[in-house]
């Protein structure tokens, strides 16, 4: 009895270090198994990159952490996902609340067809916050955080769709930051952007990691190498290797990882 309790204590103190955890996760779309037995622990205030060829399940896996797969037809999941040691798939978990804590940035910039101000204030407004001065301050501070303030401060009422692609993506990040999440999921956030805009976003990710836990899916190997602390290599729904980025890129354990990273397949 005493021993078991002791083990539990050790386990939970180990757990505490981790922001996000997946335990024995399987995902099915109808008969197709998209994720096979993945377990993974992600540390707080780190940047973790998911790499791997198209269709390997990395986006599906990313979307488990804010339950964005809930709306997909035929979606079925086994296993457990923890955020701050809370199982997020329990019935009593409020999905809306979860998504305020776990923000998401998508592959294609997808600002709302509304003004720049409305875009950033959206998350706060749907929480019922109406205080104008508070909203104004928060919009300004988050736009400054993503280094977009100077570019848009004079036309906050202009449609967000008038911005360039790179600006739109930074606006989407600002929109996410405005509700003060603790985790940010990014699904190939720079794949639709030019190199200059990409560089700006990468710089931003580097700054954000001090406050947030970031998980980023990327097709761009160099990008994973530049910005991430940890890298997971996915292949056909499995994690082949998950380690410090440095190790993955210089001295991978598995031949498959090495082949992918050196561009021999993918």
């Amino acid at each position: 009895m005493g021993k078991e309790k002791n083990e539990n204590v050790i386990e939970s103190s180990l757990k505490r270090k981790y922001k996000l955890q997946a335990k024995d996760v399987n995902v099915f779309y109808g008969d197709f198994q998209a994720i096979k037995e993945i377990s993974m622990d992600i540390k707080a205030n780190s940047v973790t990159a998911f790499i791997g060829p198209s269709g390997c399940g990395k986006s599906t896996f990313l979307r488990l952490f804010n339950r964005m797969n809930d709306y997909v037809d035929d979606f079925r999941m086994e296993g457990k996902i923890f955020i701050d040691n809370q199982n997020i798939n329990k019935k009593k978990v409020n999905v809306e609340q979860l998504r305020k804590q776990v923000g998401m940035v998508f592959q294609k910039p997808n600002p709302f067809p509304k003004s720049i101000f409305e875009n950033v204030a959206y998350g706060l407004k749907i929480q019922g916050i109406k205080d104008k001065t508070f909203l104004k301050e928060r919009v300004e501070s988050t736009l400054k955080q993503v280094a977009l303030w100077d570019e848009v401060k004079d036309n906050l009422n202009k449609s967000a769709l008038a911005l360039s692609g790179g600006q739109q993506q930074r606006l989407c990040i600002a929109r996410t930051l405005a509700v003060e999440p603790s985790v940010i999921l990014m699904d190939e956030p720079t794949s639709a952007l030019d190199p200059l805009s990409t560089a700006k976003i990468e710089e931003l990710i580097h700054e954000l990691k001090h406050k947030y836990t970031i998980v980023i899916v990327t097709h761009n190997m160099q990008q994973a190498g530049r910005i991430s602390d940890y890298t997971a290599f996915f292949y056909l729904g499995e994690i082949i290797e998950f380690d410090k980025t440095n190790k993955i890129f210089t001295n991978p354990e598995k031949k498959q990882t090495e082949n992918y990273i050196t561009g021999r397949f993918g």
């Binding site: 809306e96 609340q97 923000g103 998508f106 600002p111 749907i126 996410t176």
Partner: peptide, 9 residues
Amino acid sequence: DASYAMGAS
């Protein structure tokens, strides 16, 4: 997607 991901019902 964007709206749901922001925590909208």
